[in-house]
């Protein structure tokens, strides 16, 4: 479904991504783990075309995305939940959702289904998005992306700053999407959350995927977690 091969990108003259490759099948959940500055967010933005790729390819169902302007990519089936939510804070909840729905000209049925998934948003439709609580903002950011009815959902630190009940809600949403055949690529700092929901974990260091492993393999041998994320170093 989504194939990323030898992707590279730069910030000015500094190369951030190099030879970055991964593949995602329908309904697969892939977690990207790595230290701060490893290139996880840059990888997401480059896949989405928000940062121009300087080499390599990104293909979604065989369609090359690196040749397309960024605004044409969402309609092909890639949706994004940015780090820090990045809602349009001055716009209402309804308008934020409408922006998502307009990508594929989706109508009332999609909207109703999304609001069923996040019922609290139904009570806040006229409210300014910036005035929602942190958990509600994350729900809106996810709902806005799901309005695209994506084939692949990219989530950048979706549980950042959330209380445990909200983290559970987000992870449950990922499982629901997986059940619907949506592939999910997510960046996560909370290792336990990532291991709880991912089919595979890809470790990113210096802008490239160094190693992949299943959560089961990592439970059996957590050495890659020590190596690439620094988790449990003291215990080790």
């Amino acid at each position: 479904m989504l194939t990323v091969e030898a992707l590279s990108s730069h910030y000015g003259s500094v190369q951030v991504l190099r030879d970055f490759s991964l593949a995602l099948a329908p309904g697969e959940v892939l977690g990207l783990l790595g230290r701060n500055g490893a290139g996880k967010t840059t990888a997401m933005k480059t896949i989405l075309g928000l940062i121009r790729a300087s080499g390599g390819s990104v293909r979604l169902d065989g369609v090359e995305l690196t040749d397309l302007p960024a605004h044409r990519i969402p309609a092909l089936g890639l949706a994004y939940v940015p780090q820090g939510r990045r809602l349009f804070g001055e716009l209402s909840v309804e308008e934020n959702l409408r922006l998502g729905l307009m990508v594929k000209d989706k109508g009332k049925e999609t909207r109703a289904r999304i609001l069923d998934l996040f019922p609290v948003l139904s009570e806040r439709l006229g409210q300014r998005a910036g005035s929602l609580s942190g958990g509600e903002q994350q729900m809106l950011a996810t709902a806005r992306a799901l309005c695209l009815e994506p084939k692949v959902l990219l989530m950048d630190e979706p549980t950042e700053g959330l209380q445990p009940s909200m983290v559970a809600k987000i992870l449950e949403t990922v499982r629901v999407l997986k059940g619907q055949g949506v592939a999910v690529l997510f960046v996560e700092q909370k290792v336990e959350a990532a291991l709880a929901v991912a089919d595979r974990i890809a470790f990113v260091e210096n802008g490239t995927v160094c190693e992949t492993a299943t959560p089961e393999a990592l439970h059996a041998d957590p050495a890659p977690l020590y190596r690439y994320v620094g988790v449990g170093q003291d215990a080790g």
């Binding site: 989405l48 075309g49 928000l50 960024a70 605004h71 044409r72 969402p74 309609a75 994004y80 940015p82 990045r86 349009f88 804070g89 001055e90 716009l91 308008e95 922006l99 998502g100 307009m102 990508v103 806005r144 695209l148």
Partner: peptide, 14 residues
């Protein structure tokens, strides 16, 4: 209005 608020995220929504 979306562009005024955040042009990068606006692009990610088409």
């Amino acid at each position: 209005r979306a562009t005024q608020y955040d042009q990068e995220t606006a692009q990610a929504f088409g």
